[in-house]
Design a binder for these strands. Structure first.
Lengths: 239, 239
DNA sequence: ACCTGAACACCGTTCAAGT
DNA sequence: ACCTGAACACCGTTCAAGT
């Protein structure tokens, strides 16, 4: 609603239009109003411009959407400085992938079917590969494990975001009846009792943080024990 | 192009319009022409009808898209009859989730951000829960593991499909130079050599079948060893 | 150099009217 | 009961024209 902070004047110190600013604005707009609400016309208006002007910065809406994914993925954090065990590196990478996606729930569905690989993404991945090899993990193995964990974290975050959007996920202090009603709104009314109960157990009463860590623990434990099966997965601390 | 098998006559035995037929046609159309090409007008034409007629069967395009996901997920296979070990059940479930998604590459991106839970989906999940408990796995643990594996398989298939669409994945017999050119088309030209090499290792020379099984093996090995860490993950056969 | 008006084809959707 | 013509608001995109 509020268009300009300064009243009455001309352009309120509009900070110059650039490709980066257009992409940022698109990301913010989609996060705020939902992806379907994003149109070139409205994004133009948001930037104080007429909509077709945007074609000076992005070749098409398709390219705009790619750029939004690019900006989102470029928010990936580098691993913390200092040495870390390779299982901790795996965990750190997975957590930071999940965090970035969950920060942009409305935009995250674009990740599927839009294979954008920003430089920053590769830089971060490379830093994790190095962290793992520095701890003695062979490089090929590191890439393999990071790929598996990336895919898991991305899949998990996408499911999580879409469950959250449909209010499938539990709220802090919620009685069972309310939980029941939430989840039964998601499945057809004709569903038998035991399947409704299963749906509730699948997502209706699931602690997403804990279950994310559980799946991650499985993969880490599997990769610690797997090359020959002799290492107890609880050897290392985790978290 | 070909509209009617019978030439000249009136409506060529059009088999009655129903919600199911509309959804099927939408799925087929999107798989054939891509999701962006799907419009109510064109889908109507495909069905020998005028486009707005579809609103008698689906309330809106949004509902149509939900229905397409529903139809896709309803293709999930039940586990084979007979007993199986619970690790094999986990593997079977993951593989069949991946298979369904890979069968509909153009439609699969809809899975993200569209939390549809068809009855059939719950029935299949329930069947796997039962297969696992029949092999001695506690029921809560079964749900937990199946959820982790579901999310992994879905995330993997979505990544796979989008990499395939952008021709990031390797072809059968391909010389390294060609692989190099394929992948470098995906990343900005400014990317340094070692990051391009990393991108190639990430998806450009990755055997998706093998890497899927690898991630799955990690989770299975982790879940076999994890409750107390004493079981060798190679105790069971796999495949 | 950057923005806009006018215009285009196409889209989702409604509704009164046809058969 | 099922389909359609006509119409609407909105969308992506182009391009010649403005400043």
């Amino acid at each position: 609603m509020v268009k300009a902070a300064t009243a009455g004047g001309r352009s309120p110190a509009r900070p110059r239009l650039t490709r980066e600013r257009v992409l940022r604005a698109a990301l913010d707009y989609a996060d705020a109003h939902g992806l379907p609400a994003l149109s070139m016309h409205k994004l133009g208006a948001e930037l104080g411009v007429k909509g077709m002007s945007l074609y000076g910065y992005v070749a098409s809406k398709e390219v705009l959407l790619d750029g939004m994914v690019e900006v989102m993925l470029a928010e990936l954090d580098f691993p913390p400085a200092g040495r870390m065990s390779w299982p901790d590196a795996l965990r750190g990478y997975a957590r930071s992938v999940r965090a970035v996606i969950c920060r942009h729930p409305a935009v995250s569905p674009l990740l599927a079917g839009r294979p954008v690989v920003p430089v920053r993404f590769l830089e971060v991945l490379d830093a994790y590969v190095q962290a793992m090899t520095a701890d003695g993990c062979p490089e090929d193995r590191a890439v393999q494990l990071l790929r598996a964990v990336l895919v898991y974290a991305q899949g998990y975050a996408l499911a999580e975001v879409s469950w959250a959007a449909s209010q499938a996920l539990p709220e802090p202090d919620e009685d069972p009846l309310r939980r029941f009603r939430r989840v039964s709104a998601l499945v057809p009314g004709s569903v038998p009792d035991h399947l409704l109960a299963l749906a509730i157990r699948l997502c209706g009463e699931c602690d997403m943080d804990a279950e994310f860590e559980l799946g991650l623990d499985l993969m880490v434990a599997g990769s610690e024990s797997c090359s020959c099966g002799h290492v107890c997965p609880h050897r290392r601390a985790g978290t």
